[in-house]
Design a binder for these strands. Sequence first.
DNA 1: CGGTTCCTTGACCAGACGGTCAAGGGTGCC
DNA 2: GGCACCCTTGACCGTCTGGTCAAGGAACCG
Lengths: 204, 204
Amino acid sequence: MNRRLTQRGRERRRQLVEYAARRFAENGYHPTSVAEIVAGLGVGKGVFYWYFSSKEELFGEILREAQQELRRCQEQAIADEPDPLRRIELGIRTSMRWLGDHRHLFTLFQFAVTEDRFRGMLRRGEDVAVADAVRHIKEGIGAGRIRDTDPMVLTHAMLGVTNHLARVMIFERGDAPDDVADAAVAFCLDGLCGPPEKVPAAYR
Amino acid sequence: MNRRLTQRGRERRRQLVEYAARRFAENGYHPTSVAEIVAGLGVGKGVFYWYFSSKEELFGEILREAQQELRRCQEQAIADEPDPLRRIELGIRTSMRWLGDHRHLFTLFQFAVTEDRFRGMLRRGEDVAVADAVRHIKEGIGAGRIRDTDPMVLTHAMLGVTNHLARVMIFERGDAPDDVADAAVAFCLDGLCGPPEKVPAAYR
DNA sequence: CGGTTCCTTGACCAGACGGTCAAGGGTGCC
DNA sequence: GGCACCCTTGACCGTCTGGTCAAGGAACCG
């Protein structure tokens, strides 16, 4: 659905996206009905179908806008950092903070992966972010500071650490995003065994 | 629902669990109706409600049995390995292979996390597995072979790596589980920067 | 003022959903 | 045979779903 919207219209649309995202995350996408969304906003059902052609389209828009915003944050944070390892670190820290501030959107990402028709929507956005991280990793490998392994694999390993730690430590345990980011960065850089200088002589 | 079942009954129940799990994973939990499940098995609707009191209960059973089986595999693989780091490695390898063999169940785990009433069902099982890994990590820390960090955090970091790599590299890219396991183990042990002996002198 | 475009209403629809149940078949035991 | 128990059938129920649409209000423009 692509309508020409006035100021007022854009505001309504924003309301719908925001409220629906919250309800979807709290209650699940399928169990949340269009009727419930419009009732929660105190408007008639026609409003919904004026701005979106279907519930599915709305969900797609939520995903798209969320990914866009996360990506904008990351680009801004990394912008003038010359060191590739440090760019990676900043990426992790930014993600962690963003996830802490938008946990409901993270839940929606997780759900989207579990149904075919939504997985595709995520993929496009994820691929862009991954390609970006891969560039930094390649640079790190070129400089001999990252071991020479498939950069895609390394990227996804870091993504896995970040997402899972965000969910468990921030959402469920209530830890501070910055602390969790510290742990994630340390793990991604040096794994279980810790930075080289801390490895006992016997294992060097 | 707890019934006394004959041999024949147990077989029917197994059919229902298996077929439903596959449909839920392919099509989504909510979009898959009870009617569709029984039709796919060529039986009447009453059969479903003879074995399960609701669709939700069936889903819970699927989760419970899947977790139980994964855990059994891991315990068996680790049983007589004395070295804690190697136990961790074996745990990762076993998970990866199991996930490769049961990708549909992994999708269901992922979905379960996104809805409150199912998250609880997962938690109990996950907590047990995590507590187990934490024990091995503590042992590694005691031996000075793992850096002294919150073992829970390290465990979840590894879980994140394993799950995410399984999804992306095995399910989406079609890589061989054993290769992905190699990468996961390497990353978990030494992170991006690689084993100490490969770190260039300048950074030791 | 009239006209146009943007927005909103809510009754309405066909179909699907999860779940129930009276009835009956199959099997095995006494 | 007769009885009991396990299992199966499928029509049926009330409720809710995503989505439609004719009608009308509000804002702005000439």
